[in-house]
Each structure stands twice: as structure tokens, then as C-alpha cells.
Design a protein around this nucleic acid. Structure first.
Lengths: 133, 133
DNA sequence: CTACGGTATTCGATGAATCGAATACTTCCG
DNA sequence: CGGAAGTATTCGATTCATCGAATACCGTAG
């Protein structure tokens, strides 16, 4: 089962991704390491702002840097994660539209499965949402 | 090339995911359609709040509902996207740590590749960040 | 029609995110 | 040492997100 998702941490990670400038930064870094001034030209944003976003990404452990003399070369420290995330949000999945009947069938399937797997688990079952029409 | 990412839209999509309660809702819906009161028990949140989060998810085209009498059965309208996203934020990728030398080598590789592919593209090349030590 | 269960929306308060401006810090060079 | 280039941090203002409370809405049962 996939029960192990910790919503707090996962949401924090996602928040780090959830900004246009940060996405653009990650996309640039996917091509290779860059320093802040490089990005300043590629994206149009002020240096301070980029540094701020990099701080967020660093805190989320998405990027890290290596000091190279006076400048800092940033790179992705979880490149697979970033690549997969960018691919995921870039692709467009078909949107499914389901009828009330399909949903109903689904709910019943689910209800049955739950009841089957509940050998005295937790509280009593709560009967709800019976089929109508 | 993966040049086609629209950061604004992608960030909006990610923002819809970026909340613990919404992640929990999506996780629940992955198991099957549910109505608001079902969720009210599963997550601990007030009804109004869940409705608010559902509105966000609806706006992001992540969920939709089918009216079933007095109640609304919510379901994922892009189940693959949601499943992949939850899997992605759930898994933990190894964090890579790179030395200054590796980064430097990478930058040079990239610089060379860029220069090779730029047949008079854009502005003049700007020499930057030469190797030191 | 009225009442009620289930759900949505509006409102106001509080806290978080974002940005530019200013400034501090660090490393190299002369 | 002093200055410059590159980058980070702090600050204050503004916008955005989130939540509970209250209330509106809607479909069904009486």
C-alpha cells in the first residue's frame, strides 16, 4: 500500500516547486550547473530575488552549490526528482468525465472491498449514501 | 527538447497540490470516489474547509463531482497525474553531493556544447567564471 | 410547503509568501 | 589594505492563502 505519504513534508516539497521563477530556475539547472548571474540573464529577475528563490530551493534540498572562487555554482542535488517533476507537470493528461452511474458503481465496489477487508477493524461501519433513483 | 514548460501554469497546478489537506484528499480519492462527509471523517477537518479545498482542486481540474441525489461524489478527473504526483513526492531520491571540480567540468562541458550549437545565435558570448585555484 | 441533511460560499481575521531596495558579507586582485 | 565583483540577508510593504463562523443553497422526504 501507498499509505506512507506524510502530507506535511510532501506539501512542503511541493511548495518549493510551486513558483514560476523557481520552476524556471530548476529547468535551467537541469541543463547544467549555473551561477546566479547566469540565471539573472536567462530569467528576467533581479539578483536578490533569484538568491531568495535559491534559498528556498536549498532549504527544500532541491539544489546545492559548490563555491568556485568568488562565485557559487548551483546544481540540482536531486536531479531525477526534478526531471520527473518537470516532466509530470509538463505533460497533459486527458481529463476524464464520469457519469453518476459510474461513480455509484465505483463506490459500491469500494464499499464491498472495505467491508471484505475489515475483520473487526476500528469502529462500526457507517451506512451512508445509498443508491437512489 | 523539453523547452515547452509554461512556468505560470505549471506553478498553478503545483500550488493546487501544495497543501497537506489537499494531498490527503487526493490520496483518499485515489482509492475511490467519496463525498464530503466521508472525507470529513477520514481527515480531521471541518466541512467548510474541505469544501474550500475541493473548490481549489476543482479549479485546478484535479477533481470533479457527480451529483448523486443530495450529495456530491467527488472523483479524480486526472487520476494518472495524481497517482504519479503522489508517488513522486512519496519516494525519496538520493541526494547527490558534488565537488567543485565536478561542477566545473560540467560547466565546461555545457559551455562547449552551447558554443557548438550557437551559429551566431543572440548576443556575443560572455566569458565568465574561469577556473581558478 | 417546510424541514432537513449535505454542501457551497462569503466574510473577516490572521499568518505566510513575494518582491525591491538597501546593505552586509566574501573572495579575489592590485 | 582597499576596492570590485558576486552573492546573501534583512527589512518593510503588499499581496495571497488559510481557516472558522455564519449563512446561503439545493435536493429529498415528509
Amino acid at each position: 500500500m501507498v499509505e506512507t505519504l506524510e502530507p506535511r513534508m510532501a506539501a512542503d516539497l511541493l511548495k518549493a516547486f510551486s513558483h514560476p521563477t523557481r520552476l524556471a530556475i530548476l529547468q535551467e539547472l537541469l541543463a547544467g550547473p549555473k551561477c546566479v548571474t547566469d540565471m539573472e540573464e536567462l530569467l528576467d529577475a533581479r539578483q536578490a530575488n533569484i538568491s531568495q528563490h535559491l534559498a528556498v530551493l536549498r532549504y527544500a534540498r532541491l539544489v546545492d552549490f559548490a563555491q568556485d572562487g568568488a562565485l557559487r555554482c548551483y546544481y540540482l542535488c536531486r536531479p531525477r526528482l526534478v526531471a520527473d517533476m518537470l516532466a509530470l507537470v509538463g505533460r497533459d493528461d486527458p481529463v476524464v468525465k464520469r457519469s453518476a452511474e459510474e461513480i455509484q458503481a465505483d463506490k459500491e465496489r469500494l464499499a464491498k472491498a472495505l467491508e471484505r477487508s475489515s475483520k473487526k477493524t476500528k469502529k462500526a461501519a457507517r451506512p451512508r449514501a445509498a443508491a437512489k433513483r
